[in-house]
Simulated scan of single mutants.
Amino acid sequence: MNINERIRYFRKDVLKMNQRQFAASLGMAQTGVSGTERDGATVTDRFIKSICFAYNLSEVWLRDGIEPMYIQPPTFSLDKFIEERGGTDLEVEIVKTYFELDPEIRKAILSHFKEKFTPSSYGSLYDSVPDTAEELEAQFQLVTDHDKEVG
């Protein structure tokens, strides 16, 4: 399928629109859509960008037919994140269970650990107490490394 055929396919089979409706959705004349759907017709970058923006289409799909058709939003998988870092099934469950806790309980837990890892406990290792779990984890790693060097 070439780009002209993909435009026609998208309009007719996916959107179920006629050329006039499709053109109106893009703010152009029906003749413009008709022209771009003809085999071998030049399709401007502006037209491609208009369709992609209006319908969240992947420009790579429209130009070259490479799936996926739609732009895929970035996703984050906690399971994959932990797995990539060598985490165990138990660690995955611990993290998930932590986030199932009431927000006030999580806040109390973070406060407890913030007190444990205060700058006064480890001298100049830290400039401030962390505000996020990621900062707390990084601080914990510094403390662990420091304890290994001293111990």
Rank of each mutant, 00 (worst) to 15 (best):
N2C: 09
N4Q: 13
Y9K: 11
F10C: 04
K12Y: 08
D13F: 06
L15D: 04
K16M: 09
R20S: 14
Q21M: 11
Q21H: 15
F22D: 07
F22C: 03
A23V: 11
L26Y: 01
L26T: 07
G27P: 12
M28W: 12
V33E: 08
V33C: 05
S34I: 10
G35L: 08
G35P: 08
G40Q: 10
V43H: 04
V43P: 02
T44L: 13
R46H: 11
I48H: 00
K49C: 08
K49I: 13
K49V: 08
C52K: 03
F53H: 07
A54W: 02
A54R: 15
L57G: 06
S58V: 10
E59T: 11
V60Q: 15
D64C: 09
G65M: 10
E67P: 03
P68E: 05
P68R: 03
P68M: 02
M69G: 03
Y70T: 10
Y70L: 03
P73D: 09
P73A: 09
T75V: 09
F76I: 07
F76D: 05
F76W: 04
F76H: 03
S77A: 09
S77P: 10
L78Y: 01
F81M: 09
I82L: 01
I82G: 01
G86S: 05
G87L: 00
D89W: 00
D89S: 04
D89K: 00
E91P: 01
E93Y: 05
E93Q: 14
E93C: 05
I94C: 03
I94E: 01
I94N: 01
T97E: 04
F99K: 05
F99T: 06
E100M: 06
E100T: 13
D102W: 01
P103L: 03
R106I: 05
K107A: 13
A108R: 15
I109Q: 09
F113W: 10
E115H: 09
K116G: 01
K116D: 04
S120C: 07
S121F: 01
S124P: 04
D127T: 15
S128F: 11
D131W: 02
A133I: 15
A133D: 08
E134A: 14
E134P: 03
L136I: 14
A138L: 14
V143W: 02
V143N: 07
K148I: 12
K148G: 06
E149N: 12
